[in-house]
Computed example of a mutant assay.
Amino acid sequence: MTNTPARTPARVCFELRIDPARIDDYIARHTPVRAEMLAEIAAAGRRNYSLFLAPGGRLIGYYETDDDDAAQAYLAASPIAAAWEAEMAPFFVGLDGRPDQAATPLTEIFHLADQLAASTGGSASDDERDAS
């Protein structure tokens, strides 16, 4: 049996802007998201997915995946995701393209587990990764 090192998942964070006049309806569409769309997100390989809404319509999203390019390609080819994104597109301002494909990516500059591991010369434990 080959002992392969654990692969660190990609942590992806992005920003979108929601039309402030449509925030309540946007929230309602996510409370809850349709089951078939939830299944597509999971099938794409995204997990630990969250959306955070700030005043004025600033939306921050976060998820983890083992292969973000593959996850993006899966959702780009999914008729279920295409229908959902077409339905969601009118909620966003300053967006050119599908929300799931055109969101502004944010650059990670700090991650506790990674820095703890680097400072001790070890690797982050599952508990440290889960705490972040």
Rank of each mutant, 00 (worst) to 15 (best):
A117W: 15
D24F: 06
A89S: 15
G61K: 05
E15F: 00
S78W: 15
F110W: 13
G122T: 12
D69W: 08
F110Q: 03
N48F: 13
F14I: 09
F92R: 02
R47H: 12
R46V: 05
V12Q: 07
R47V: 02
E36P: 08
T31A: 11
R7Q: 14
Y63M: 07
A21P: 02
A70I: 08
A42V: 15
R129S: 11
T65R: 01
Q115L: 14
A102T: 13
T4Q: 07
E108R: 03
I41G: 02
S123W: 00
I18L: 10
E87D: 12
T120W: 00
F14L: 03
A81Y: 13
I23V: 13
D69Y: 14
Q101T: 15
A44R: 01
D24I: 09
D19S: 01
F110V: 14
Y63A: 06
D67L: 06
D69N: 06
Y63F: 15
A81L: 04
T31K: 12
S132W: 01
A35M: 12
I23A: 03
L38H: 01
R29M: 07
A35S: 03
R34Y: 09
A83N: 14
D130F: 02
W84D: 07
L16Q: 11
G57S: 03
G122M: 06
E36A: 14
P5Y: 08
A89E: 11
A82I: 14
R7S: 08
A89F: 02
Y62L: 11
Q72L: 09
A43Y: 02
Y63R: 02
A131S: 13
D114M: 13
E85R: 03
L112K: 08
R129M: 14
T2K: 11
Y62R: 06
A76R: 09
T4E: 10
Y49A: 06
A103I: 09
D126V: 08
D126F: 12
